[in-house]
Amino acid sequence: MRIKFSLLFHAFMIVICIIPILILFALSFSKNWAFPAILADHFSPIAWQDLFSGGNDIRHSLLLSLLIALIVACTATTIGFFISKTIAYHNFRRQLLFLAYLPFVLSPVILALCLKFYFIKLSLAGTVSGVMIAQLIVAIPYSIIFFSGFWNQRVKAFADIVNTLGGTNMLALTKVLIPLAKPLLLICFFQCFLISWFEYGLTSVIGYGKIQTLPIKVYQFLIEANIFYAALSCCLLIMPPVLLLWINKSIFLKRLY
């Protein structure tokens, strides 16, 4: 009875996850879909062909989003890992950790509006580097908070053991601490990647509309009522989370059976 319920639950969850994705894919292959028709007049791979041939600028947005998200994720994970260590063993741990929560007090758009002045002054507004820095303002504190639970007296004791066995701090880091933190580093990298990948508010305000990442593109297509290209952009946009779900599902099923 319990197994049946579990199977039903999984089937229900799979349907809930897959149906919206299928609809998006169908839309990205559609042409001339007019209300009240349930399906489009006909289907065509033209939007996808344009993506691969470079006939539209979605490919540019895809590559730009990938570049920004990868750099932001790598930087935020690395910096967050080390800053969180410093904070964890600092006398003012609580106060410093409180500062890491500040970027999350405001919504990203309001935060961007507050920071816009400084970005204009520093000639960073409307540039890729400006958008990356703006996203890092959110991603680094996230990473710091994420790793704050990792650093404890036990982890410190591991580093101390390496030191007393004759190893330097660098050796303790490379041979013991990083292998210990490896699963967390991977998760944090992926989370920071997703933060950057879906980021809209900060990117649109700091990027001035000049930095056309995929989320910006999706909104642009929606405003233009170009639902077929919007669907195509959405398909590309949801690929990383789908991949994450797939990986999680594999791990989950392995644990279950």
Binding site: A157, F158, I161, N163, G166, V176
Partner: peptide
Amino acid sequence: QEPHERNIVYLFQEALLFPN
């Protein structure tokens, strides 16, 4: 001297073997 220069080994309450 830094701990790694002293050649004095510290054994904790817990064995703390490197799990990897």
